[in-house]
Simulated scan of single mutants.
Amino acid sequence: MAAGESDEQLAERLATAAGAILLELRARGEFEGKALGKAGDEQANAMLCREIRAARPADALLSEEEKDNLARRDNLRVWIVDPLDGTREYGEGRNDWAVHVALAVGGVATVGAVALPGLGVTLTSGAPVPLRPANSPLRMLVSRTRPAAEAVFVAGKIGAELVGMGSAGAKAMAVVRGEADIYLHTGGQYEWDNCAPVAVAQAAGLHVSRVDGAPIRYNNADTYLPDLLICRKELAEEVLRLAGEFTPA
């Protein structure tokens, strides 16, 4: 660890380093498909957990790839990590996958770094990206394999173009980067799927909430998070209203 390394610097360094591990592993060609994803998860997770525990021994840690310890709930500070978000995309040789390193303080996503190794980019809460003008027509991100019915409904009402993409981190960062305007997800996630993306999106000045408008809280006993909305602030009121009007068939 660098002397005096801030939480933001630590998150960025580790997310980027994990991305380098994953790219190098894929380039070696020893594994393919699901086996590649499994090996990538294991190797990136081992490094991230080791380094976080060494750098911040007093903090708690929640990782998708580690057995959960509910003692973390007694800690104000918990690092929330997804070593490989978008395992399928990674295994298929695509670029829409990510590494998430976040710090929640008092249940709030406070620090986040999302590496997009396939694009050679790491976005962080410590260096917010200036928002670009909105797209015309608006662009809404959905799962490339399972578009949520609520998102399809809202997109139709506001005339938004649906854009399929892989991992949650890749989708959230596409909004941060101005490639899209809305990411509405109702298909279920876990805290590690969105804590780092939420921290980065908030720092960039985007709206972030649950689909009912409630704030997103972390370090819960149950780590399941059914839904979220990340979008440009000027669109939030209408998107939330329309999402509330959706009635399943």
Rank of each mutant, 00 (worst) to 15 (best):
A35L: 15
I158C: 03
A196S: 07
I21H: 09
G159C: 13
P133L: 08
V78Q: 02
G164V: 10
S6P: 13
A149E: 13
E191C: 11
R132E: 12
A155Y: 01
T145F: 14
A243F: 04
A113I: 08
P137W: 14
K67W: 13
L61G: 00
K34M: 14
L225S: 02
R139W: 11
E65P: 00
N95D: 13
H185F: 10
A214G: 02
L206T: 11
A60M: 08
L36D: 01
Q43L: 14
R50W: 10
Q43S: 15
G166P: 05
L235V: 02
K157Y: 03
E32G: 07
L229T: 04
V129R: 05
E238L: 11
I80P: 03
R13Q: 13
D212W: 09
R139Y: 09
P83Y: 05
E234W: 08
D68I: 02
R144A: 13
E51I: 07
E237I: 10
T145S: 15
E24P: 10
A17Y: 04
A168M: 15
V176P: 02
G187K: 06
W97M: 09
H185K: 08
P215E: 09
E92C: 11
T122G: 00
L228W: 08
T145M: 12
P133Y: 03
G107L: 04
L62W: 05
G29C: 04
A149Q: 12
A15T: 00
A236M: 05
G86T: 06
A174F: 04
G37L: 01
L206W: 09
R72I: 08
V129F: 06
C195E: 04
Y90V: 09
T87M: 10
C195K: 02
R88I: 15
V108K: 10
G166W: 03
M173C: 12
W192Q: 12
A214M: 03
L228I: 05
L240N: 01
R217C: 07
V211G: 00
T122Y: 03
G118H: 00
M47A: 08
L23S: 11
A149D: 13
P226C: 11
L162R: 07
L61R: 03
E245T: 12
G37N: 00
A172D: 02
S136T: 15
G178T: 05
G112P: 07
V239R: 01
A11D: 08
E191L: 10
D82P: 06
K67H: 15
E191H: 08
E89A: 13
V152D: 00
A204M: 06
G118A: 05
C231S: 06
E191R: 04
L131K: 13
H185S: 08
A221C: 13
D85T: 02
A127L: 12
A15C: 05
R210H: 10
A149P: 08
Q43G: 12
E238I: 07
Q189N: 14
G187L: 10
V208Q: 01
A104T: 05
G91V: 09
R50H: 13
N95Q: 14
G29E: 08
I230F: 05
E8R: 09
P117S: 07
E245M: 14
A102N: 01
I230K: 03
G40A: 07
A172E: 04
L240Q: 04
L206M: 13
P248C: 12
M173Q: 11
N194L: 15
D85K: 00
A199V: 03
